[in-house]
Computed example of a mutant assay.
Amino acid sequence: MAILVTGGAGYIGSHTVIELLKADYDVVIVDDFSNSKPTVIDRIEELAGKRPDFHEVNITNKDALKEVFEAHELEAVIHFAGYKAVGESVAQPLKYYHNNLQGTIVLMELMNEFNVKKIVFSSSATVYGMNNKAPFTEDMPLSTTNPYGTTKMFIEQFIQDQYVADETWSAALLRYFNPIGAHESGRIGEDPNDIPNNLMPYITQVAVGKRDALSVFGSDYDTPDGTGVRDYIHVVDLAKGHIKALEKVLETTGLEAYNLGTGVGYSVLDVVTAFEKANGVEIPYELVNRRPGDIGTSFADVSKAKNTLGWEATFSIEDMCRDSWNWQKSNPNGYEA
């Protein structure tokens, strides 16, 4: 029996696949390389000592995805696949609704058809919207500020409604906070297309000389230094959270949401300072206007994941900064040669 990992060549997906292989799961990846590179599969094999089965498929293509279900005896799905750039989602909402929502519907239809009713879903803290006060707990009301976040919220609803219709389903909705870092080897990491949307790859691209300075969006928030506060989590901690969630899903039925974060908020300038300290590299920055839809403070209450899944984050902010820089300086152009 194998675990199907959609989007398994992506940043979080690839780190999770390594942890799955280390835990002796058989893994089948589907990915269309829209936000990843074929080289990732080779590096997963290099680091894990075995190669996952791979199919180049966009999950909106039902015929192609059905062939994957027919070719493998699948036990569960970890669902990462989806477009993920907030700004692009605002500019091209229909692209996001078609790919992320239709792709998930196709996936879940095939899961029903082939009786694979166990899923770990890659959700996001964006579903807590603008109106909740940190620390965020899983029982808070949900809302979103952009189409990307709306797709995450809708997919959570799809899965909840499917469970109501068929209580033999088992699901974990994992609400990530801000993943950063990379595998300690420096062989896999975050390789964004075009200008980074997230803080850490922007910092590392400044550090490696690809960009002149970091733009800090907003310096007038109600935070200790005026810059936005976020809960940053090492991607390897996050990957291990998926293993714990998968174990829970495989042994039970039901549906639960879990926050995956550290429970600690760091400001943008805190992260810059930690990066400089951990790596001995200066990061020039400029303060610019807020981005629409950004909130001042976001961090998790992580007690549910700790108490229910037996999982908690272990890496420090310095560890995250060190591993991020190790990846970038070892791969100044990402996965491109």
Rank of each mutant, 00 (worst) to 15 (best):
G293L: 05
R187F: 00
E138W: 02
Q102W: 12
T262W: 10
I12P: 01
F154Y: 11
P224C: 09
V281H: 02
A274Q: 12
E19M: 12
E19W: 05
Y96I: 01
I317G: 05
K133E: 15
S170Y: 09
T314W: 02
N198F: 14
A305S: 15
W327K: 05
N197D: 05
I317C: 06
H234Q: 04
L142W: 03
G334D: 02
K210Q: 15
N35I: 07
D319F: 03
G181A: 08
D319Y: 13
I188Q: 01
E70T: 00
V120K: 08
L287T: 00
T314P: 03
E45K: 14
N307E: 15
R43H: 13
N178K: 06
A2H: 06
K244I: 09
N132V: 04
K240H: 11
P52T: 05
V116P: 07
R187V: 00
G254E: 10
K244H: 15
I29L: 07
D31R: 04
E138H: 11
K210H: 13
A300W: 07
L74E: 03
V236D: 06
I283Q: 05
W169T: 07
N115K: 12
T168M: 07
A134H: 11
T39C: 02
N58D: 12
S34R: 08
L214W: 02
